[in-house]
């Protein structure tokens, strides 16, 4: 099927009396307002994802979004695409089924850190290993937001959560390192405040043939910053002030430490055949 190119959005649209937000054609407006709390970064990351989808110029019908469970996992519920809100941790295998059954689709997984890396961690490493041609966007808010602020696999060491009231004894994952070690062929990290870089990264990731992963640091004002006595705006400022953009940085130096400076950028972007391509070749033999 030929892909009908959409016109990139016009920025000099005539000012109608009731102009529309430029992303409205991709949002289920009848479901707005969304559930995300005031100041929650999920909405910003979601918005960047929609901008990227628009910017690709690819027919919207050729996209599908899959989410797991969590605040971030509500993303699939607001996008005006064929979209799937699945079970906790299982967005990636659901997306894998879609992609392998219809490789012409661009499948985006939009979910949270708990969903993708605790309960769904096994699926993540295996999809990365296979170089499954899907785009995985992880909103890392350092906590389980939806269930009220329990410790996550990304919660900083000694940070407080409702289940680590005296501080988190464990250490968080270095997600880009994990992704690269597992075989992901596109890996990047940004924060929600870097929305232009983020949008570009999403666009690149969608265009990338193979498993692409973008970690996006984002505030959870209700269940993370407040409990740890951080002002949300201060955390967002840290995202800008205490971060260093360094493409292809050594993955083992990507631990999140705002005192030292958190490294952002693109850490991996290589070509490798994808399972759907290989299978298509085998079928033709």
């Amino acid at each position: 099927m030929a892909i009908a190119k959409r016109q990139p959005k016009s920025t000099s649209a005539p000012l109608s009396p009731d102009p529309k937000h430029p992303l409205e054609d991709l949002i289920r407006m009848e479901r707005i307002p969304h559930i995300w709390c005031p100041g929650c970064g999920v909405g910003t990351v979601f918005s960047a994802c929609l901008s990227a989808i628009q910017q690709t110029g690819i027919d919207y019908r050729k996209f599908s979004m899959v989410s797991g469970i969590g605040c971030s996992g509500r993303g699939a519920g607001y996008v005006r695409l064929d979209s799937f809100h699945t079970t906790h941790g299982r967005a990636i295998p659901f997306a894998t089924g879609i992609k392998m059954a219809d490789p012409s689709l661009n499948v985006i997984v939009f979910s949270g850190d708990g969903d993708l890396f605790a309960i769904g961690g096994n699926h993540f490493i295996h999809a990365a290993r296979r170089n499954m041609d899907i785009t995985v966007i992880c909103v890392n808010n350092f906590i389980y937001g939806m269930t009220g602020g329990q410790v996550a696999a990304t919660t900083p060491h000694m940070a407080k959560s409702s289940t680590t009231p005296f501080g988190n004894p464990d250490s968080p994952f270095n997600l880009p390192l994990l992704a690269i070690a597992s075989g992901a062929t596109y890996v990047a990290r940004w924060t929600m405040i870097h929305s232009r870089d983020l949008t570009l990264a999403f666009e690149e990731a969608i265009g990338h043939r193979g498993f692409s992963f973008i970690e996006v640091l984002s505030p959870c004002p209700i269940n993370y910053t407040r409990r740890n006595k951080i002002k949300t705006m201060d955390m967002v400022r840290q995202f800008h002030n205490n971060t260093i953009i360094k493409n292809h940085a050594n993955p083992s130096e990507l631990d999140i430490d705002f005192q030292k400076g958190v490294v952002l950028g693109k850490f991996m972007d290589i070509d490798k055949p994808t399972p759907d391509e290989i299978l298509a070749k085998l079928r033709n033999q």
Partner: peptide
Amino acid sequence: ELLCPEFAIYTVADEGEA
């Protein structure tokens, strides 16, 4: 426009200017 989590603000070029 890019930062707003609520799709509540956006800008367009002022008339005449692309």
